[in-house]
Write a protein that binds this DNA or RNA. Sequence first.
DNA 1: TTAAACTTTCAAATATTATTGAAAGTTTTT
DNA 2: AAAAACTTTCAATAATATTTGAAAGTTTAA
Lengths: 168, 168
Amino acid sequence: MELAEAKSKFIETWGKLGSEWGINRTMAQVHALLLISPEALTTEEVMEQLSISRGNANMTLRDLISWGLVEKQHKPGERKEYFFAEKDAWTIARQVAQERKKRELDPVLKALSELSQIKGDEKNPEYKAFKSSVSGINKLAGNVNKTLETMMKAEENWFWGSIFKIFK
Amino acid sequence: MELAEAKSKFIETWGKLGSEWGINRTMAQVHALLLISPEALTTEEVMEQLSISRGNANMTLRDLISWGLVEKQHKPGERKEYFFAEKDAWTIARQVAQERKKRELDPVLKALSELSQIKGDEKNPEYKAFKSSVSGINKLAGNVNKTLETMMKAEENWFWGSIFKIFK
DNA sequence: TTAAACTTTCAAATATTATTGAAAGTTTTT
DNA sequence: AAAAACTTTCAATAATATTTGAAAGTTTAA
């Protein structure tokens, strides 16, 4: 396989994965492109390499920055902005986990803990079923939350080391 | 808060969470409805309670069955099919993890390991950057994969117990 | 200050995904 | 064998999400 072919396959794969997990495909593709690029790229280059419009490239790059996955770079004597991606896989995973936790898990956790407070008639099967399902999910979500918080603080080696020590 | 209000809030919350994570909103809502229902429901009841069409209800229920989250039930003397959801949160989590691993992670893992094999000129920065990014992600994905496999086999108490012993 | 270089915005167009509902299919009962 | 009870399919439609591109905005250089 050619390097060029491998690159587009990687961009395609990463884009597909993103879209299956609720991340805009283009955003994942731009991220992939920057991930495998040794140099920071301009908006222009991103547009060309992925055949997307200026507006799309601009918005996507801003999104990636807000996710903490991409940073701007300025080259001395040039006005153009360059963009490059964090390359360390573990840092990327932590960053994504942190953002999604903040944007999506935290609100759900809040709603669940409110819902699991609800009082009612213990004789009512509707109430009992509701209560027990919601509490169960709430407890699980709490565990997921704690694990993510630990992961966000952890070093890669320590994290996987700890996990595998247990799973061996 | 009324039980009825709490129910619709739960259905709404679960639906939103699903859609943010690449699961069809209606599917998550039907799942939520069955989760909090003490009795198995008919297609008819699902249609009414969520105001969705017969076709949609049917397809969604079939999807949920293929995810292993819902099962059919037959009541003696009746021709109608009833549907009920697995209620244990840990089992649900494992089931979802298993399906998504099979449908989405495994193909990516395969693609990544192919891509990380690619040979090229060590002097070429394009090649070096590609290789190192892809290998890093590949390694991480491998760890995620192993953890999911362990999780799929594990009992809830054992799993979280193990994790928290480490993270304490 | 004006022009050039570059970035951002956003309404309109396009593409994708989900939903409907009526017709076709299937199984059971009479 | 025909009707009744129920389930499934899928082309048409609707809803949602993404993308475009030209205009407006901003910053720097002359």
